[in-house]
Amino acid sequence: MIYFLCMVLFAIGLYGVLRKRNLVKIILGLVIIEYATHLLFILIGYRMNGRAPILAEGEVIANIVDPLPQALVLTAIVISLGVTALVVSLAIRIYDRYRTFDITKIRRLRG
């Protein structure tokens, strides 16, 4: 069920990217897609009644959630940070040139 909700979130993001005309809204759609993916990844590593995978002195390791997705999601978040920063700076530059965020008006390229 909860995986299904992640896919719904993913679909919302995809809708945002495909249907919206504002550059900023497209970027938000992109971010939502990435968040949905990361959320799904974390949820896949979850175990029932699991606890955080932190090793502390003198504790027994029992029933921890899968630590690997958490490490990987951190990497994926860094990557999406990079992409988002780049896309936002591109959007600012585009606004600087075209004076609009509307993609229907930004149409120099054809074909």
């Binding site: 920063a85 936002v88 700076s89």
Partner: peptide
């Protein structure tokens, strides 16, 4: 790397915006 990079990204975006206002 992260600290300097993030600060640079922030400053980059802020500077771009200021440059925009001047124009």
């Amino acid at each position: 790397k992260v600290g300097a990079g993030l600060f640079a990204i922030f400053m980059g975006l802020v500077f771009l915006k200021i440059l925009d206002k001047d124009k």
